[in-house]
């Protein structure tokens, strides 16, 4: 019976693409996400379980083997696994006191790439995205217009913009206008 009705996944931005001559906007492939919460005592054990050093400095991130952890707050990380790993179970294997909540479907992401990427994001994001202040690897929860986002700088001219799924068309729209203006 189940095979007759095996549900298919529909990501919110499927099929969308956009940008301008200097910025490319691409929905990121679905990935596992957890909101990971833990005190400082658990960082070592969780790092071991996740196979990366959980960042402990503001705006820090760490990546290994398609898995990225972004410091969001002093006891909070967003962990993303592009290979779809069961991050709740992996964090659970650490044995340390923590809370891992699956937000894989809450979050969706847009890759903003190109020489105008920072300008496009600055159309709605008030953070200083100069390389000195927001270097490659920096990540932060912030806002884009009227939506909350998590911003991660993947390369000098490439960002990952995470947002909640119902805000994703708005975020994509803001970035589209920002991208257009960044190429003006």
């Amino acid at each position: 019976m189940a095979d007759l009705t095996q549900a298919v996944r529909r990501a919110p931005l499927t099929g969308l693409h956009g940008g301008s001559s200097t910025v490319r906007l691409t929905p990121a492939a679905p990935a596992s996400h957890i909101s990971l919460r833990a005190g400082p005592d658990a960082v070592f054990a969780l790092s071991g379980a996740l196979g990366l050093d959980l960042p402990t400095r503001p705006k820090g991130s760490a990546s290994a083997n398609g898995r990225t952890a972004i410091w969001l707050g002093p006891d909070e990380w967003l962990v993303i696994d592009e290979n779809g790993a069961d991050l709740v179970a992996i964090a659970g294997s650490s044995g340390a006191l923590h809370a891992a909540t699956d937000v894989s479907h809450r979050n969706t992401a847009i890759i903003v790439a190109g020489p105008g990427a920072a300008s496009a994001i600055n159309a709605g994001c008030p953070q200083d995205l100069s390389l000195a202040v927001f270097p490659v690897g920096a990540g932060s929860r912030t806002i884009l217009g009227k939506a909350e986002i998590v911003l991660l700088r993947l390369a000098e001219d490439t960002f990952r913009v995470e947002c909640w799924r119902s805000f994703s068309t708005y975020v994509f729209g803001m970035l589209t206008e920002g991208a257009e203006d960044a190429s003006a």
């Binding site: 909101s35 919460r37 006891d75 809370a99 909540t101 699956d102 479907h105 809450r106 119902s166």
Partner: peptide
């Protein structure tokens, strides 16, 4: 710890 899962 508290996490919003409205959209999950």
């Amino acid at each position: 710890w508290l996490t919003s899962t409205t959209e999950q």
